[in-house]
Design a protein around this nucleic acid. Structure first.
Lengths: 358, 358
DNA sequence: GACCATTGTTTAACCGTTTACTACGGTTTG
DNA sequence: CAAACCGTAGTAAACGGTTAAACAATGGTC
């Protein structure tokens, strides 16, 4: 079996604050106070202690520190997957802000499995993270909401704070912060952009009922149509998941099934747009000359394919989530509980005015 | 607004193991043992305890648990940036394996700043992570190596384990695991692929100076040339950073500066290849008809542009790093300390046999 | 009916910090 | 001149678990 007996496993055990105190000839409390810098101390004592720390290569034990009441130093973020650019960029923002605040970042992934999401939140609760940031869209049925609301309360009770990042709130009395971005507004703006260019039949790719993100985007699309008095044809809303392959599939199937009945495509995100673009090309249709194409997200690949799209402030989303949560936890102030960050369209070269053939 | 006033901030403090014990009518020790499942217990007691846990919504305090000697539950990973696909994929592997082993994952980012890297390792030491995985290439001068070697020793002393992932080892007596992949072999293979297609003048795009990854890739390139008895022209090795923009720049400048003197391009990674491809196209050169193009990494964008490239087992890299480190920490066995994962070329549609014009 | 092995539980000693209290010289102050 | 104050530093009690060792209950054996 494993021996971790004090005898052999480690010739020396790691240095503790006691060792430092002894080495510097002061008390443990003094060392603690000097290291946390939260107390006046005589310069002489201070330098004695610092020297001891250096000589013994001492680092504090985060567990002990956390136990003894000092607030934990960590921020938790839970995402579907680390390799999705969308989540990665939000995570980057979280990282950045966490680093600024001197915290470190615990990451959990769920693979889009609600059960794993719950389990991960629980883990973060064990870990006493200062806040738990849940990012990304999700199927939001009532059972889910109710259960997550419980978790939010449990976190609050433990002095932590749940943050919903890029997803709608759980309910009126749930102690959770919400940092959203304007999906509907962005979709409205970019649809209007197409409409202003004269497009009337705009294919929407990526409809998925009950997923919050595509749902609010499609709302913006419909509203823009209505505002421009363009009749809404539900047949133009194609259903599919939010990845490149699906974008390819949706357009390919659409083109195979009959004559082209649209002049522009609004892909629910840039990945879908990339796939759609490929399918269009393979069908001999050039973007933007033959078909206009827009996306949503403005992640790096969008620039690569000159895609006009909606910019989502991913990193700012992450940073804001951390900032708000920490202020909340620190001051217990009555700060905003719901923030909506703006989106705006980024015009590149994937839209052309429609040429009226009639 | 929400009231979180200090007075009632916590009407109840979070549940402790003592509360559970009282509620179940057993001792604290019994609860602890039943929860960690590391001790026989009567079914009746067990169910009493579990019920109490459920009723009180108890979760253990990770800090206390970590303090009391049970090994920590976390794995640390340090990367340059979360939004780089390369790192993201390795991180995904780390996440996956960590989840399997029931650990969670602390992530630190360095922004390629060695100083921040050191600081982050130190933080992970405080945090008592079971292992610290350092991923990505780095300028590896002697001073850096020596200092990192010290950190490796400090970690080992504390029962943790440094893992270098995708970078060369620090030195002979440094207690650090190394999980690499075969950069040189991959570069050799794909260069040979081009050579077999008849290409003789192959432009190499990437950085040469002291960064470990491009350095070992260029070595494979040169060796393949030598093996095929093709004269090596240093003028074909173009210098630039490892991103898309630079790939674009390098090719553009090259084409602007004189007649095209190459038939194929070996981009040091897929991003460079994507940029190069765009520059080629803008210059009226089609891939692969006019110019063959290969990359390195095999990340998703490569498939999008039909790029023949070298597959790097990113996720496996991460998984292996965690697996090895944990076995090491557990058994203190004399396992392999240095693993080299294989790479292989993935043939898509970006290479054509050269048409001899002479 | 005393003895023993087995099983299940409790007692108590840590783990390494933080943080009230407290102590103590030396100034001010009333 | 005693009292209040100030800046530092020490003492010791948490913090919430784990775990070795002690202990009680149980049933089987001679």
């Amino acid at each position: 079996m494993v021996r971790r007996a004090a005898s052999d496993s480690e010739g020396r055990r790691p240095t503790t604050i006691r060792d430092v105190a002894a080495h510097a000839g002061v008390s443990v409390a003094t060392v603690s106070r000097i290291l946390s810098g939260t107390y006046p101390s005589a310069p002489a004592t201070r330098s004695k202690v610092m020297r001891a720390v250096r000589e013994l290569d001492y680092v504090a034990n985060a567990n002990a520190r956390g136990l003894a009441g000092a607030s934990s130093r960590s921020v938790a973020i839970i995402v579907n997957s680390v390799i999705s650019p969308h989540y990665a960029h939000v995570a980057q923002g979280v990282q950045t802000q966490a680093a600024i605040e001197g915290k470190l970042c615990i990451v959990g992934t769920t693979g889009s499995d609600p059960e794993r999401e719950f389990a991960t939140v629980q883990l973060m609760r064990e870990e006493h993270a200062e806040c738990v940031i849940l990012v990304g869209n999700v199927v939001a049925d009532d059972a889910y909401r109710a259960r997550m609301a419980e978790y939010a309360r449990a976190l609050a009770l433990a002095g932590s704070q749940l943050v919903l990042c890029g997803r709608p709130e759980l309910g009126p009395d749930v102690p959770a912060l919400v940092v959203e971005y304007d999906n509907t507004g962005g979709a409205h703006a970019i649809t209007s952009h197409l409409l202003s260019a004269g497009h009337r039949r705009i294919l929407f790719l990526g409809r998925r009922d009950s997923y919050t993100t595509p749902e609010s985007r499609i709302l913006g699309y419909r509203k823009a149509l209505a505002d421009h008095h363009v009749p809404h044809d539900p047949g133009l809303e194609v259903e599919g998941r939010m990845d490149r392959r699906e974008g390819y599939r949706m357009v390919r199937e659409r083109l195979a099934s009959g004559p082209r009945d649209f002049t522009a495509v609004f892909a629910c995100n840039d990945l879908i747009a990339a796939g759609a673009r490929q399918a269009l090309r393979e069908h001999g249709l050039r973007v933007p000359d033959d078909v206009s194409l827009v996306g949503f997200d403005d992640l790096p690949p969008a620039a690569d394919i000159d895609l006009t799209t909606v910019h989502v402030p991913h990193e700012e989303l992450g940073r804001t989530a951390v900032r708000m949560a920490l202020e909340r936890v620190r001051d217990k102030s009555d700060m905003a509980e719901h923030v909506m960050l703006g989106t705006h369209i980024v015009i590149r070269d994937s839209v052309r005015p429609v040429i009226r053939t009639d």
